[in-house]
């Protein structure tokens, strides 16, 4: 803590690491964000300082308790206790968003984000925190990442930019891309 300001440590938050490495997208006060895999709400609470509304999707009960505590402090977080792999279960509550952020350490990570792509406005951006060790522990991280990138390209995303977060998080890649305007 530095006075009333908080330190956003890059070791704890992957998004902070991305900004430290100088390639995070701008978040403005009017933005709506869909955050998949909110966990205990550390990163969510920091994004909430910048964004307008943030939908935080988390299924696991124990982190959800902590997320609700964060919700009590930040009034613009909307907690959604649902499975990110089943977007139809929460689609009736979520509006179109300007930014889709996904940080789920799962084997099916890329598939999950593609399922949630219809929430994203045309022209909106997507941040995918790819934990390559969760996708496959034997394969080379670079290979997994290039597979993920080609999957995203096939789904119609453009301006794909990959940043490796190895300095702060081992074998993690941040993939930033844009949904094309119709």
């Amino acid at each position: 803590m530095a006075g009333s300001l908080r330190i956003w440590p890059p070791e704890r938050s992957k998004l902070a690491a991305l900004y430290y490495l100088g390639s995070g997208p701008e978040i403005c006060a009017s933005d709506q964000i869909l955050y998949l895999g909110a966990a205990s709400g550390t990163t969510v609470s920091f994004i909430a300082d910048y964004a307008g509304v943030i939908y935080a999707v988390e299924i696991a009960p124990e982190p959800l308790v902590m997320l609700l505590e964060v919700c009590n402090i930040k009034k613009n977080i909307i907690p959604i206790p649902a499975d990110a792999a089943l977007p139809l279960t929460y689609a009736p509550l979520v509006s179109r968003v300007d930014l889709l952020y996904q940080d789920i350490a799962q084997k099916e990570q890329v598939k999950i984000v593609l399922k949630n792509l219809f929430f994203l406005k045309p022209g909106g951006s997507l941040i995918l925190m790819l934990k390559t060790r969760s996708v496959a522990s034997q394969q080379e991280p670079e290979e997994i990442c290039s597979n993920a990138v080609s999957e995203l390209l096939n789904a119609g995303l453009a301006e794909i930019k990959v940043t490796w977060l190895n300095k702060y998080h081992r074998d993690h890649a941040a993939i930033i891309c844009k949904k094309l305007e119709k």
Binding site: P61, L64, L67, L68, C71, N76, I77, P79, I80, P81
Partner: peptide, 12 residues
């Protein structure tokens, strides 16, 4: 937000 918080609490 209020509705979603109720939903989360019910789930918990």
């Amino acid at each position: 937000r209020a509705i979603c918080i109720i939903w989360s609490q019910k789930k918990l």
